[in-house]
Structure formats: C-alpha cells, structure tokens
Nucleic acid binder design. Structure first.
Lengths: 238, 238
DNA sequence: CGCGACTTTGATCATCATCAACACGCGTGG
DNA sequence: CCACGCGTGTTGATGATGATCAAAGTCGCG
C-alpha cells in the first residue's frame, strides 16, 4: 500500500496507468497523449469528496489509482452507497447539466480530470470513444439493476455472498489468478450501507462465512475465497 | 379503459400518439413519417412478455399506449421489478448485444417496434436524436439510483409514499391538473415487488395512508393525493 | 505503549414476512 | 338480472430476520 502511494507520485508510473485506461485503447497514441496534456491529474485523500450531487458537471474522471464510493443523498448525513469504483473506472460521464450522485475517495486516489468540453470534442471526433461511452452507460445501468435485485429480494447472507462473488469475478475478469485475495478498501460501514444492511449484521454474516470455511481473511482488508461454488450457492438462493 | 382500447385500433388515433412520442420532436415531420413506415405497430395483451432478458436486442420500442413492467430475473419465477413504463416511454435502447431485462405488459398495450439497424441509422443522421438518447440513458440511470435509495434505506411507509409521490410528480410533469387521480395499472403484487415489500405489507400501508387522509381511493386502480406535503413528509423521513 | 478509529460480539426489540381466512369486484352463464 | 366462482385485494395472528443498543476487542499509527 505504502509502496503504491509513493509510486503514484512518480510521473512515469502515473502515465503508464493512464495509458492503460480502457478508453485510451480507442484512440491513436497521439490522441491519447493529447488528453494527458489537456487532463489534469488530481490527488484525493481518503474520505475526501471528488464531486457532489447537484453540482455542475464540469469534469469527467478516470481513476488511475485508488478506490471510491458513489453515493446518493437522502436527508443530510444519510446516504445510500450505490456503487464502488476502482482503478480503470470512469465516472461523471453519464449526466446532463448536474451530477446525479456524489463520489468520495475511500483510500488516497490518483485521478485524471478531463474538462467536459474537451471530452465532448473527443467523443465527436472518435466514434469509437462515443461507442465506448454508450457501452459504459449500458454497463452502469445493468450494474444498478443487479444491485436492485440484491436490495429488493435477497437475505443478509445472500447479499454478502453476492458482493464477495462480484469482487471475485472482477478479479478473474482482470486476469488475476484465482487465489488472489479480494481487496476491500472500504470500511465495513460502507459495505453494509451498499448492501442495505447495518454494519453489525454485515459483520455477523462475514464471520459466519469465515466459520463455514467459504472465505478466509488474510488481513482486515484482504479476503481469500476458498470455495467459489459454495459462495455462488449462498448468493443465489438460501 | 374500454374506450381507449377501441380507439387504440383506430389508425389515426395511433398515428397521433406516435407523433406525440418525445423523440419525434427531434425529427423533421418527413423523417418522423419515415419511421412510422419502417416501424411495426405491435399489440400486446395483458401479462404477455414483449422482450426477454438475454435475448438478442433486435428492436427498440416506443409506447403508444398502455403500461409495462421492467423485470430482472433471479432464479425462475422470482424476479425483481426494476421499473414501470408508460405511454411515451421508450425501452430496449440502452443495451449492447442482448437485453439486460425483461419487459411485460400489465395492461393491453400498443407499441411501435423499430428494428435496431434502422434506429441506429436515425441516431447517426440526427444528432438531436443521439443527444436525446444520452439524456434518456442518464435519466434511466438516475431513476435506478433513486430506486436504490428506496430499497436500501427506507421503511415500508416511506417506500409506498415515495412511490405515490413519484407517480404524482409524473402527472404534474405531464401537465395534468393537481386533482387528476394517479393511475395504477399494475397489480398490488407488482407494486409491492417493485418496492421490495410483500403485497400484504403494501396493502396495510396503503390502507393506513387512506385512514390518515393523505390519499383517497377513487377506485381500485385510481388514487387521488389529498395532501401532497403530507405525502412528501412521509416519504422523506419517518 | 497507548490512544482513537474501527470492528466484533452479545442481548433485546421492531419491522416486516409468512401463513391463513375472509371480502370484494368482475365476468360468465344460468 | 341474479348467482356463482375465480382472480385479486384486505385483514388478522404469529414468527423470523435484521435493527438497535451496549460493551468489549483489534488494528494501526503516533
């Protein structure tokens, strides 16, 4: 962790990360370089908000490093976390005038902020980027709907299992070996909130999963899935 | 209702409805006419599915008349309703290859089905339509996130109140006078499902709201909101 | 080593789900 | 036109799941 933090301030490292962003692939190298010039790198401390629901949507962001929460306000202090964002994700794209949610860093983050006008010029110029954006929108929507299923129809243990499974599948999608532990950069309270539970309930279910041997805690923020099929079983019906 | 049904089969009436669809405004009259020629009008009976989750996304639909549910499957027979659609809404737009949800008619519906290739040609040709689509995507996403807040953080009475408020605000947005009763074309079970409740709990809360005088049932499927502020109060915090 | 933030565990309680019976409305057929 | 029956909605009694309140235990960092 500390190592990553130090490296994040190394320009060459950051540039690599940025060039590895998914939509960069849709551009020519020259165009990608142009964005690096236009875009502004922004460092955000843990707990700090990046953008706020209702504010004018002036920038789109790409995550070079770190993890963030997407939250939707209710009355002050009482928000629902509607998603987590990790390295390589973008946010602030699918909006009109104003942001419809807030985004906050759960660990120190390195972001690339692109002014929206510049971003839109790029969209117009590169149809492949445009298409990638629509793709993103559809993914985001599908993700939100999966989340709705979790909140609407699942029991506590199903919710926690689904969540861990989701992160585990993300790991595989990124090509990490199956033993790679899941990284949980967010606090228990945030996970519980995301799952529509209290942190106590989450904690109880979590230790229950450990007792059953389905998962194994490496440390507070790292979990290994020992029995994916068992987890899938628990996530589906129970 | 019966009156509408008969009228719906009247070609002139249907054409009017279709021309009143929101994205038609983004087109020249000639172009709008072209769609009517390309598009296929489809009648769907109550309870019948229009499209199924996972099926190839070959058409986009506009609703000329009726009301439908959007559902997301879990194990067979157990689905979460993630939204309701009414006259003027579109669906099937924000997807890649395959639909990510199923859509089913709750009352007899008249739809305009547009083959996706034709639709995409229109998008390319009319930037205003393209922009309208992005707008739609962002609205849909914002709607899903509001729904997440309901399911994640609200009590039964808050959920029901929010739901009624939503429909009431839709009425105002469409320019109907404040006394216009809300139309609830869907069954109680569907509403309850949408709200993450059982139909019994919904029913109880609903009668409670009637007893309090916040709402007044005109008939089984029509409710008048007597006290919008009271409803808003109940929806927000409790 | 000690402090504060975060997490786990425990005991009790409220909300909502479940199971079950009853009522209503609507269409059909006598 | 009324009677019957089914689909749908309401109401009631009970119980389970998860929330709340409270206290003890860890982790990580100075």
């Amino acid at each position: 962790m500390r190592e990553v933090l130090i490296l994040a301030h190394n320009a060459a490292f950051l540039e690599d990360r940025i060039k590895a962003l998914p939509w960069s692939a849709a551009l020519t190298p020259a165009a990608a370089q142009a964005h690096l010039d236009i875009g502004e790198v922004r460092s955000v401390d843990r707990g700090e908000p990046v953008l706020r629901e209702g504010a004018s949507a002036d920038f789109v962001y790409s995550i070079a490093d770190g993890a963030l929460t997407v939250e939707k306000g209710r009355s002050a202090g009482d928000t629902q976390i509607v998603g987590f964002l990790f390295q390589g994700d973008m946010f602030g794209v699918v909006h009109d005038e104003r942001y419809s949610y807030s985004v906050r860093a759960t660990v120190p983050c390195e972001l690339l902020a692109l002014p929206r006008p510049a971003f839109e010029r790029i969209c117009e110029r590169y149809p492949s980027v445009q298409r990638a954006m629509l793709q993103m929108a559809s993914n985001e929507l599908a993700g939100a709907q999966d989340h709705l299923v979790i909140l609407g129809r699942k029991s506590a243990i199903e919710r926690v299992s689904s969540f861990l499974l989701m992160l585990s599948e993300r790991n595989s999608r990124l090509g990490y070996p199956a033993e790679t532990p899941i990284w949980l950069p967010m606090r228990r309270a945030d996970i519980a909130n995301y799952l529509g539970l209290t942190l106590e309930t989450f904690s109880r279910v979590f230790t229950d999963l450990k007792r059953r041997g389905v998962i194994q805690a490496q440390s507070m923020r790292h979990v290994r899935v020992r029995d994916v099929d068992g987890l899938r079983e628990l996530a589906e019906k129970c």
